[in-house]
Design a binder for these strands. Sequence first.
DNA 1: ATGCCAGAGTAGCTCTGA
Length: 256
Amino acid sequence: MKKFATWNVNSLAIRLPQVLDWLAAHPVDALVLQETKLTDDKFPTMEIGEAGWQVQWFGQKTYNGVALISRERADGVIKNITGFADEQARVIAGTVGGVRVIGGYFPNGQAPGSDKFAYKMNWLTGLRTWLADELKAHEQLVLMGDFNIAPEDRDVYDPVAWAGQIHCTPEEREHFQQLLGLGLTDAFRLFEQPAKSWSWWDYRNLAFRKNQGLRIDHILVSEALKGRVTACEIDKAPRKNERPSDHAPVIVTLDI
DNA sequence: ATGCCAGAGTAGCTCTGA
């Protein structure tokens, strides 16, 4: 049995103690982090290593930044999307125990029609092109991260208000479907899930207390792993911490 | 119609996030 997880921590400098606590309680094979918001020289390599974990990291100043924490050392580590030139640190990939683990912090996109939205579309195309090659090279693959896409209306607390808004545009949802078209499966939807399951809640408006959120953090698995998924859950517990990230971790369990 | 909250850096405000 293997477990993999993803968590947008919204600053690892702030959230490191919570990440170490979470790992101690959830001994996963690999955890990918997004929005570390740290330059590589400031990454807490020591603290993570002392807790008994291997780690690969790829960051920049102020924004973005990703990491791959694993029990076994990750091989074949790649940073960002091969073939897609990018100033922003958004992807880290590595092979852990024979499984290709890809962690991504997908662009936010800000608003349809903006430059940032155009960047998001180009980035998604670049990701898909590269992923096709990764899937050819690695039969067992998990793509995890903050996709910044709510795939369907049931992934949105108020789909009428959010219709056509960022994370919910037809263009973004089409890109999500094209990722599935590569042979990937949304592990969360392999199971019956509670209605109103979200992975992100706005810090404002008491959104968590009112359970007003979006499901934008996902775990997609390759064909070879699809039949091996035994569970996929969102862990809301860390969102109840005193100083939480606005995102919750998502965990997948595989019978491999 | 807008901002709410949170984090980081150019700092005592602006930018970005979702």
